[in-house]
Design a protein around this nucleic acid. Structure first.
Lengths: 280, 280
DNA sequence: CGCCAGATTGACACGGCTCAAGCGGTGTGG
DNA sequence: CCACACCGCTTGAGCCGTGTCAATCTGGCG
């Protein structure tokens, strides 16, 4: 019992170190300990495990230590939409901090482990440990930005562009938490999941994937993605990683970024002629 | 000078009372005063005034006292996307609380007035006044939810559904801050704006608007929207206002909601058969 | 009166959807 | 160890919602 307890605790510390929550605010040791002490409930979960059902009441937050989770909504006509992917280090259901009934469900896309934190405790930590509050703010705002970019992608990009953009984003986010090896990463999503995340149909995802593969930009087999040609993939969607705010979160992967970072908003090469006159 | 100062201050208090920021957390008088004292810089702005340019550095937050603003992104091909609408009481650029370079621009859609708050001050308020921190958290999380719903709408609804949903959402959000009269409200957006907000083209917005009008559900003329048949409009998009978390924010409009609230997640009438088998 | 932004209309093209069939791996019970 | 079932992936054919292009109309305003 006791040994299991400490083992679990040790795992927490080790794994938490890899999380964005952990890294994002440079917590003081005292704060870190406070946070870790809260991690009483660590659960190993299998793929498909629901963390939160749609419309259900909640009073806990789920922090992903390992594995992928999807935040989804089922529309009235029965179609499904995946509004966010939670990767290791992400909070799956931040809204639960304030609302006791969310408008989405959360489910595991792969096996993994999660920390279950009572909302009330998090709330207390927020006031007692300003550094934790800062970390959570960063997380919430970064999530907001990611969602905004995601939305723009769905609204204004072609199927190929959306797919390319998602794969680029996932590579960087996974690199930051040490879950990518070089330019490839384990990818637990099915084509149906992809369709639901990008606002397309599975059939069309299939064809789009094929066209992406045929360009040699990526490889996807055995549930693993490899970005063979980053520049090509990036070019397909004009990926600009600034929105991820990785600098705020981590600095280690400047390498990967540096090649891309030069594409800051200012220095965009004159693209194909703008279609719309830009005046709001 | 001094009188202008106090006049501006009085306006603040009066108008702020109508804002979500104000109402959402039931601030104590002391907190309210602290917040109001910060509102040194109140600007009257005209339609089209940019509050924040894309990719520019910022160190201030803009709180809308009156008027509409749009948060937009320009894609590489020159097309534009409006990722959020800020209404009176909303914070236009919350991300600036943590990041000094945002990935969107903000511009006024109508004339209005804004409070300009230095990020640093807000940051201080956050730690010194827990109630303000709570209010801002609610705002940030509610915004997140709205964005999620918006995204789902774009990803999975038809043009008509998207339009209907947006008009429903705007009615409720405006009612909450007292900017709607009955079932109608001033509507400063052009059809091009609508197109950019819903991921469509202006031409198609035009046709969709006509079809909506022809059903008798709405009226849109002279920059004013009237919802003639709420039930019909709601039916077109299965609008469920729960995601707005209005109860957390305001309770006065229970009337309008009550008719809709009954459509809670549990009691959804069996819709047309689900197209997908729902298992994640 | 002339100008201009925004709204409208028509004709046509095309990206992505639908429906439907078939394929391959893998887990499971007999 | 086979047979079946099931899930996820593929492929084909045809349709339809929305985009594109281009012209015209309208109302407000200088």
């Amino acid at each position: 019992m006791a040994s299991a307890q400490t083992a679990a605790s040790a795992t927490n510390v080790a794994t938490l170190k890899a999380t964005r929550l952990w890294l994002s605010a440079g917590l003081e040791p005292a704060d870190r300990d406070a946070l870790v002490r809260e991690c009483g409930d660590v659960r190993a979960v299998r793929a498909g495990t629901p963390l939160l059902r749609e419309g259900a009441k909640t009073d806990v937050l789920h922090v992903l230590l390992d594995g992928w989770a999807a935040r989804y909504t089922v529309m009235a006509d029965g179609s499904r939409f995946i509004s966010a992917l939670a990767l290791p280090g992400d909070v799956c259901d931040l809204d639960a901090l304030r609302f006791d009934q969310l408008n989405y469900g959360v489910t595991m896309l792969s096996a993994g482990t999660v920390i279950v934190l009572p909302r009330k405790r998090v709330d207390e930590l927020l006031t007692s440990h300003p550094a934790i509050a800062r970390a959570l703010w960063s997380l919430a705002l970064a999530e907001n930005t990611i969602l905004t970019t995601w939305t723009a992608s769905i609204a204004r990009r072609s199927a190929q562009g959306r797919l390319a953009h998602l794969l680029c984003e996932l590579l960087l986010r996974l690199q930051v938490v040490g879950k990518a090896t070089g330019n490839s990463y384990d990818f637990p999503m099915t084509q149906e999941h992809l369709a639901d995340a990008l606002g397309l149909t599975p059939v069309h995802i299939n064809r789009t994937l094929q066209s992406l593969r045929s360009t040699g930009a990526i490889t996807l087999q055995n549930r693993r993605v490899t970005i063979c040609n980053w520049e090509a993939l990036r070019g397909l969607c004009n990926f600009n990683p600034r929105y991820l705010h990785l600098e705020t979160v981590h600095t280690e992967f400047a390498r990967t970024l540096s090649s891309t970072r030069s594409l800051g908003s200012e220095s965009l090469p004159p693209p194909s002629r703008p279609k719309l006159v830009l005046k709001i």
